[in-house]
Design a protein around this nucleic acid. Structure first.
Ligand code: MN
Ligand code: MN
Ligand code: ZN
Ligand code: ZN
Lengths: 152, 152
DNA sequence: TGCTTTATTGAGACTCAGTATCAATATAAA
DNA sequence: TTTATATTGATACTGAGTCTCAATAAAGCA
């Protein structure tokens, strides 16, 4: 609760710096995101809010997610399926993702050797590295027996 | 020309194996892709065909791209902008991409250390690696002076 | 507290890449 | 040729995400 409130304060400051206002909808959306460890799409968040009797429009969720992304509260990502997903970024250092093609499970990882190679490779091309996406697609441990039966 | 024709033959074989037919539209689309080094979206291919007085419907381009992807002729990729791009895969070994946020230029790279780390990391999680996406976003050499003026 | 300004909201229209439908047409095999 | 059926193009449709705008609510101030 105290942690949450400090995040809401931080959000309020971020909003004020841009001349934006702190609304009940924005608080509800941020709190929902802070309470989740998942990589969710807009509608997941919307339905989660509704299951807590909070009614917000889809447009407002999209609008708030954009503000939260710019403010560094959430990370927007896509795993190639044409939809964007959002994850609570505050408690997490940078990481990349392994994504199970069967069940959608996401395993997070970081590897300093890879991070270092990225810097090295971009320097070779005089390319100024800003950010990166690194996604490993495959079959997770739990899904391998089932996948084998289907011939994957 | 001879190289092209052998690719068309290969395409024909692939189609026949599936009970599909070789049509003038499919040949035109494959030839257009074989003649390009770029990472193009559907409409780029469509307009390229039209500039050569070849009229094909957008639906047919999409349908053919799907067949070509399954057959290993093209690689379908997205760089996070919500549209798919396709590149001629035949002459190329596996590689990943650096993408310029200013001009869209794409630089291809491969790094055996990174490839090896990916295998290592997935093994640690008993994750069966199938494919991966690794994209480095930033500012290319040519765009850095312009970007500096804009404060990037 | 009440007033004023203006940011925000929700409903629904809209966009746009990609997919599905279906009658007309072209392919390939006999 | 003839025939069976795969393919095409036109166009309707889908679905994630954006835009519009009148009604509402937040924030600063008297
Ligand atoms: Mn994550
Ligand atoms: Mn490439
Ligand atoms: Zn799985
Ligand atoms: Zn550039």
């Amino acid at each position: 609760m105290t942690i949450k409130n400090s995040n809401i304060e931080h959000f309020k400051d971020t909003l004020q710096a841009e001349g934006l206002r702190l609304t009940s909808q924005r608080i509800a959306i941020l709190e929902d995101i802070l309470a989740s460890e998942e990589h969710r799409e807009c509608d997941d968040i919307l339905f989660s809010l509704r299951s807590n009797q909070i009614s917000v429009s889809r447009a407002t969720v999209y609008r708030t997610l954009e503000i939260l992304e710019k403010g560094g509260f959430v990370r927007k990502m896509n795993i190639g399926d044409g939809r964007f997903r959002y994850e609570n970024k505050l408690p997490k250092p940078h990481h990349d993702h392994m994504i199970c093609l069967e069940c959608g499970r996401i395993i997070e990882f970081v590897d300093q050797e890879i991070e270092a190679r990225q810097v090295h490779l971009t320097k070779q091309h005089n390319f100024k590295l800003v950010r990166h996406i690194h996604q490993l697609f495959g079959i997770c441990e739990d899904c391998q027996p089932a996948a084998a039966n289907k011939g994957v």
